[in-house]
């Protein structure tokens, strides 16, 4: 249930009861915020990896997440269909396919125009988003799908806080992925080269790194992170073809909230946004909580505009 805030407003008829939480449930509220925050963190790091290497904001990040969720469902079988692949295999296949898709779309769509301005490329990723969304719509229709948790059983009680098992899966696997990412970025050749492209593309080119190739790798890595987030998310929420754009927006907000520079910041921003969302929606009167996503997004846009000086200084391109 903790992925509830991810569900779009149109499906929120059951949410007021869920959110009518008392103060006694603060630990559970915080926990659910952290769990959602892990998803936002993965998506925000996906945005960050692509942006840092290419300068492109990947508008399709939420749709890569949706693709990961949908493919996991397809392979594992929605709700207890026994004639499908084992869960681990399903997740792995889904992630591998979406990763390849991310790299392929970069090669086909972004690559020919990578010398264009960032807005042009952002519009191209909007195109990719529509293609992925439309591609999911045709086989799935506008139906919603759910998946069983990775391990079944009642919620676990940890220091008095009741935690559904899938929540633990989400937090644990996010930690592992982030650890692997850190290791990859600092200890491997590809990771170091990616960071070189990020810091100084010209210098990277001069020492023989094929920067263009790392654009493809960055998009593939971004798609991988998003797809993985989708795969671990799908047991706690419903997957629909159009779940992507709200997640893109939240990932973007999380990314900015974390300072838009470092992966640590993006993770902190993701979890911070998740907690904020859970607390705001959990403790608002139903008349406000009805607006779902709109509430935390609005708060953060206001915050963003107020502290815009700090942000624009970081991201502005000096032209003189």
């Amino acid at each position: 249930m903790c992925g509830a805030a991810l569900v779009r407003a149109s499906m929120m008829d059951w949410m007021p009861t869920f959110f009518a939480t008392g103060i006694g449930q603060l630990p559970e509220t915080l926990a659910s915020g952290i769990v959602n925050g892990c998803i936002y963190a993965l998506a925000a790091v996906s945005l960050l990896v692509v942006y840092n290497v290419t300068g492109v904001i990947n508008f399709a990040v939420g749709d890569f997440l949706m693709a990961g969720a949908m493919l996991t469902l397809l392979f594992a079988g929605p709700n207890g269909d026994p004639h499908r692949l084992p869960l681990a295999v399903a997740v792995l296949l889904a992630v591998v396919i979406v990763t390849a898709l991310g790299g392929l779309l970069e090669l086909l769509v972004i690559h020919p125009r990578r010398r264009q301005g960032t807005i042009f490329l952002l519009i191209l990723t909007i195109g990719i988003s529509s293609v992925l969304e439309g591609g999911a719509l045709i086989p799935t229709g506008s139906l919603t799908y759910g998946l069983r948790p990775f391990t079944s059983g009642p919620a676990l009680s940890i220091v008095g806080v009741l935690l559904p098992r899938q929540d633990l899966w989400i937090v644990g696997s996010t930690l592992i992925v982030m650890g692997l990412l850190w290791y990859g970025a600092t200890r491997t050749r590809i990771g170091k080269a990616l960071r070189a492209c990020e810091v100084n593309p010209t210098a990277a080119r001069l020492v023989g790194i094929r920067v263009d190739r790392y654009w493809t790798i960055a998009f593939a890595l971004g798609a991988l992170l998003a797809a993985f987030a989708g795969a671990i998310l799908v047991p706690v929420t419903y997957a629909t073809y159009d779940m992507g754009i709200p997640i893109t927006l939240k990932a973007f907000v999380a990314w900015i909230l974390g300072g838009a520079e470092s992966p640590v910041g993006a993770v902190a921003g993701g979890i911070g946004f998740g907690v904020l969302e859970a607390v705001v929606l959990g403790y608002s009167p139903a008349s406000v909580a009805n607006y779902g996503d709109a509430v935390p997004l609005l708060l953060l846009i206001v915050a963003l505009v107020i502290r815009r000086r700090g942000l624009t200084r970081q991201m502005a391109v000096t032209r003189v």
């Binding site: 904001i57 952002l122 815009r308 624009t312």
Partner: peptide
């Protein structure tokens, strides 16, 4: 409008 291009788009 003080925000730069792509930030503006997403906001």
């Amino acid at each position: 409008f003080r925000l730069t291009g792509h930030l503006l788009g997403l906001v």
